[in-house]
Design a binder for these strands. Structure first.
Lengths: 110, 110
DNA sequence: TATCATACCTCGACATTCGATGTATGCCAA
DNA sequence: TTGGCATACATCGAATGTCGAGGTATGATA
């Protein structure tokens, strides 16, 4: 049982990050804000979860980083999807759909 | 990133178990079979995941166990929901809906 | 000048899943 | 009768991921 709502995040954070980067490069701080905004505050990713996720994805070759200047004029590390990352995104998206469909079947049928 | 599809299970297994017991007492082995059946083989719970889950839920007072005889005539531990467990089930079900809605928002809007 | 938002990061505690392994019984087929 | 399979319980250690707390630094705003 998840300690709280946040824990449901398990296994899904990387997919969210990939999916967000699919529509353009962003830096970490921005990704966190974006997730919170689009999810209407339901999902709030702490930095202690987000940065490990970004480093994980980078290490696995799904995203790559480039230092640049943010909208506010500060140094920031912008991440963008690689070709592998794009492929991975749709794979994981399919798995997510398949999985939630399966869970919903059980929730309906008991 | 989950190693495989199974890992998506994270944080959801307890909900599935609760929801299944909501329609009547079952024993562990039966719960595993049932999940696999209803989910059309998408979700396969190993015993190394299921039994810890059952013991967790029992310790927290959401289910209680009783030894009985299974359909095949063997000794088996039947679990049934407690009042707390029923309440918990609908709480967790709501959280699940809220969470998947939020994730789907991000998957749609990038 | 102090505090807040931006922006990066790491660390340790904690929980969970997973595969492997172990026990035991009953049934069926060779 | 013996070997294997399905039933049914359980535990263990490795691996993974999340989380909260903490740390650094800068620029803007009050």
């Amino acid at each position: 049982m998840p300690k709280n709502k946040q824990d449901l995040l398990q296994g899904t954070l990387d997919l969210l990050v990939l999916r967000i980067l699919n529509s353009g490069a962003r830096h970490g701080y921005d990704i966190a804000k974006h997730i919170q905004l689009v999810s209407k505050d339901v999902i709030q990713v702490g930095q202690g979860s987000l940065y490990p996720s970004l480093h994980r994805l980078e290490k696995r070759g799904y995203i790559k980083a480039k230092w640049d200047i943010s909208e506010t004029g500060r140094r920031a590390k912008f991440y963008q999807l690689t070709a592998d990352g794009k492929k991975k995104t749709s794979e994981e998206e399919n798995k997510w759909q398949e999985f939630t469909t399966a869970v919903n079947l059980i929730l309906k049928n008991g």
